[in-house]
Design a protein around this nucleic acid. Structure first.
Lengths: 194, 194
DNA sequence: AAAAAAAGAATGAACGTTCATTTTTATCAT
DNA sequence: ATGATAAAAATGAACGTTCATTCTTTTTTT
């Protein structure tokens, strides 16, 4: 195997191990030695790819966030109507959170704890810009309620995180019907009634 | 001062310190020595009141959750209509999350990480029963959408946690108007349209 | 043959918890 | 009420362990 590919594989193995272990135990309860073992690598090798533990988790966060938003906006383009565009994005996000639930859980944990640097958090937020732009367009068109984007996010996108976490905990199961209900609730709570 | 009161004070100081430090650094980055220092107590003294660190955080979680739900349901009674009851509870919860935001943040962190035992988590859920009962009544009356309680929670109550966290991070400020908007979104997304 | 990557062992700091001791509180005979 | 005594609470220091990181050596790649 080519040397470069081997390096990439090793780095990926480290990132994947970090996600899995942090999901199950949290950042500080995940020793570098365990991450190394799961990635089939010596602890010292981690320091060739990352500066330190904090750097490892920051970079993992940003990479996962980038993959997530890339998926979310993959089929979206600005020629769509606001309603169509929102439905598309919402359903892609839902899809991602259910299919790539390890990644989504990792993001949720990062977003709800002092685990990662504020700088990396800011960096992560930027990736959502297309959705915020869509909402701004919706507001000028009078289709979306004239509310803060934080409110729109809280009532349309964020609930998916809660549902994903509940599902992961085994508390209940999200099926097709649930998802359609969830989408209707999301859209209903942010759209303007005609 | 009476001996009993002094003991209670010390325990409270430990619980308060735990909340503040865990909010700022997370469970594993909060040493017992720091908790002790903030509570003006020797590290060894913690072990008179709690079995160990895990027990300290579990008990703190349950106590905060109990205070929170006590406040949420304080003015509620089952003779109210579903809509009145929901508005009352929702607004009490909003009130609590904004006023007692340290406590609310601590609960959010507990609910989104593997910080506390599953047993304590279950224990915490029980306290929300009056709201779940209200929703069940609403469904039989045809006032509330016939959805899983997890969905209802995700779209009406949980968004408040997201907003509270955003506010705490200084990202934006929740004023009276925001709150009224938020309530309308919450109610709109769970009520049945006539 | 030189350079880079990787490894395992070593290091020093930090942590949760316990130990030996002191201080505070409660009990009770006078 | 008071002082003697027992019990409980509280403490600072110490222990054993674990961890992130570095060091030295070996292996792999160029």
């Amino acid at each position: 195997m080519a040397k470069l590919q081997k390096s990439i594989d090793k780095r990926n193995a480290l990132v994947t191990a970090t996600i899995e272990l942090v999901n199950n135990s949290g950042f500080h309860a995940t020793p570098m030695s365990k991450i190394a073992k799961m990635a089939n690598v010596s602890p010292a090798t981690i320091y060739i790819y990352f500066e330190n533990k904090q750097d490892l988790v920051n970079k993992t966060y940003i990479e996962v966030k980038a993959k997530y938003t890339k998926y979310a906006f993959a089929t979206y383009n600005t020629t769509l109507s606001v309603e169509e565009g929102f439905e598309l994005i919402w359903k892609r996000i839902a899809d991602y959170k259910l299919k790539e639930c390890e990644n989504a859980m990792f993001l949720a944990q990062c977003d709800n704890t002092p685990m990662i640097d504020e700088t990396s958090r800011q960096e992560g937020i930027k990736h959502l810009q297309p959705l915020l732009d869509l909402w701004d367009r919706g507001k000028t068109e009078g289709v979306i309620k004239p509310m803060s984007n934080y409110l729109l996010y809280a009532y349309s996108i964020n609930p998916l995180s809660f549902l994903m976490m509940s599902q992961k905990r085994g508390a209940f199961t999200l099926d097709k019907t649930h998802l359609e209900d969830a989408y209707q609730s999301a859209w209903t709570s942010i759209k303007v009634f005609k």
